[in-house]
Design a binder for these strands. Structure first.
Length: 558
RNA sequence: UGCCGAGUCGUCUAACGGUAGGACAGCGGCCUUUGGAGCCGUAUGCGGAGGUUCGAAUCCUCCCUCGGCAGCCA
């Protein structure tokens, strides 16, 4: 149980429901949640919200959390998705222990329950085809009409249902329907379909079944069988709750409580599996784990930490109103976490050569750099300093604008951990482009020596040319150019794809980074957080993904 | 037009009849050998109209706006 010693978790309406349930001793005071994905795609940040919610509730209330695949539709589901989902839930920290379940493991039990309903006169085999069912369902404002097969005898229903299972009928020929009310104002109650015939191999059941349960019929049973106490799902299932309750009540079995919350929408991206699948299939992105994708695997590859995603989930809270969450919240969450953990290092994204004309040709000085100012235990490292360096192109302006604290002709700037230098000469090629800066350094100004009182406004990062490790750096920008690409009814969301969401750079980093392992995260000082890409990094070439930039107050001033 | 649901700072989210608070974003400042981090300060909000009440974001009525639902998807 939660104790008063623990930090107070942010209140939300689901916690209030649970608190009340616990108070009145409902369901033996247990809390047992689940995350029930269909394995028809990769998990995204919206699913992460649900996982954190469900797992967090179980953890905080000393309860249990199940991972259950809702694999009731063989035509869309694949083992690849199962594997990725298990990996993602684990990575996020969702601990389901040994409780990994599959709806398909309950098919036999569901079938028996269906027979029970038939025997109670609450379900019937219907021979209407898809068009006919649609036509007799009525509309939002008009009631439907009864199926001509609605009043078959129980014996005939039992016989037909058995034959459906045996594979005697083709796809779509017959369905099993609940006998509820064709005039119900809630369309879900107009004799909903419980089983459809699908002759297709199932990723786990193979050809055992040609009869597959629908979501509405299956889901409550799955929850019931697992002893789930609070069945948390998103708002679009709200209209299905009466049906969830109806099935469980008619069956007379353990009855969990369905609670709906608003799904996550994030600005500048899309969250539907259908759209994400389309981006992948049509190569708008480089797979489900493309770092620009809002998928968990994409975010992992981009350098997000599980902790940052969990913090984000806590920040956004849980409610019942539709919302569009600002991407800035997610970026804040990852910066906050990485700031505490990331090894600092210097890397020059777009290099500009600097020659220190008064620095000895063959000298290499070793300068000490702090690995993480937020965490002294991470220690220090030595950084080589030589006559020829690279600095960031953006750290030099031939004609500086006001408030520009960096290098310009005749001005001084500090090199991080090193000396103050002065720009003496700008070297250009025939095209007039700046190719090199000739500077002088002031030997009295070495960092930490305190031998000079000289102060400069700016400090810039650099890499010794002789020691520079060439790397590829991938900069990512938002995938879409508008806040809510999916909301425009008249336009296809793909029209808003950002054509500049990926920029690939040839860059240099300090030698400390040379043997970094795939997945390792660094802060390139003044630039942002970067991680070694797990897909394209090879033995002789490091590829970095920019996870997120540092907050840049200078960029805002411009 | 039927049913269900939701409206609180720019964004997300608290409040449970008793001073509308927090986070992010913004703005101003301090500090700084990362224009990072940190610290301090600051502005902005209860969809509308009535009603009940000493007192309403909260309870009631009406209105407005937005979202979901007519798959043999989940």
């Amino acid at each position: 149980m939660n104790t008063t010693l623990e930090p107070q978790k942010k209140s939300n309406f689901i916690r209030e429901i649970i608190d009340e349930d616990l108070k009145i001793g409902k369901r033996e005071g247990r809390v047992h949640t689940r995350f029930p994905p269909e394995p028809n795609g990769y998990l995204h940040i919206g699913h992460a919200k649900s996982i954190c919610l469900n797992f967090g509730l179980a953890a905080d209330y000393n309860g249990k959390f199940n991972l259950r695949f809702d694999d009731t539709n063989p035509e869309k589901e694949e083992q690849e998705y199962v594997d990725s989902i298990v990996e993602d839930v684990h990575w996020l920290g969702g601990n389901f222990e040994d409780r990994l379940f599959y709806a398909s493991d309950y098919f036999e039990q569901m079938y028996d329950y269906a027979v029970d309903l038939i025997k109670k006169g609450k379900a019937y085999v219907c021979e209407l085809n898809g068009d006919e069912i649609r036509a007799t369902r009525g509309t939002l404002t008009q009631p439907g009409t009864n199926s001509p097969y609605r009043n078959r005898s129980i014996e005939e229903n039992l016989d037909l249902f058995e034959k459906m299972r045996q594979g005697e009928f083709p796809n779509g020929a017959k369905t099993l329907r609940a006998k509820i009310d064709m005039a119900a104002p809630n369309i879900n109650l107009r004799d909903p379909i419980m089983y459809r015939i699908v002759h297709a191999g199932h990723h786990r059941q193979g050809d055992t079944w040609c009869l597959y349960p629908t979501y509405d019929w299956a889901h409550g049973i799955e929850d019931s069988l697992e002893g789930i106490t609070h069945s948390i799902c998103t708002l679009e299932f709200e209209n299905h709750r009466p049906l969830y309750d109806w099935f469980l009540d008619e069956l007379g079995i353990y009855h969990p409580q369905q609670i709906e919350f608003a799904r996550l929408n994030l600005s500048y991206t899309v969250m539907s599996k259908r759209k994400l699948l389309e981006l992948v299939k049509n190569n708008y992105v480089d797979g489900w784990d493309d770092p620009r994708m809002p998928t968990i695997s994409g975010m992992r590859r981009r350098g997000y930490t599980p902790q940052s995603v969990r913090n984000f989930a806590d920040m956004i809270g849980v409610a019942r109103r539709d919302a569009l969450t600002d991407l800035a919240l997610l970026e804040f969450a990852v910066r906050e976490d990485l700031n505490k953990k990331a090894q600092r290092v210097m890397g020059v994204l777009k290099p500009l050569k600097v020659v220190l004309t008064n620095f000895p040709e063959d000298l290499t000085e070793e300068l000490e750099g702090v690995n993480n100012p937020e965490d002294a235990s991470m220690g220090t490292r030595m950084i080589p300093f030589t006559r020829e360096l690279y600095i960031e192109q953006s750290d030099f302006m031939e004609v500086p604008v006001p408030k520009y604290h960096r290098l310009a002709p005749g001005t001084e700037v500090r090199l991080r951990y090193a000396y103050i230098i002065k720009c003496e000469e700008v070297v250009k090629n025939e095209a007039g482009e700046i190719t090199k800066l000739r500077c002088t350094y002031d030997p009295e100004t070495r960092s930490g020596t305190g031998t000079s009182q000289k102060k400069v406004k700016g400090t810039i990062h650099w890499v010794s040319a002789k020691h520079a490790v060439p790397v590829e750096i991938r900069l990512y920008d938002r995938l879409f150019t508008v806040e809510d690409p999916g909301s425009e009814k008249e336009k296809d969301y793909k029209e808003y794809i950002n054509p500049n969401s990926l920029e690939i750079l040839s860059s240099v980093v300090e030698p400390f980074v040379k043997n970094a392992k795939p997945g390792a995260t660094f802060q390139f000082e003044r630039n942002g957080y970067f991680c070694v890409d797990t897909k394209y990094t090879t033995a002789d070439k490091l590829v970095f993904n920019r996870t997120v930039t540092l907050k840049d107050t200078w960029a805002k001033m411009k």
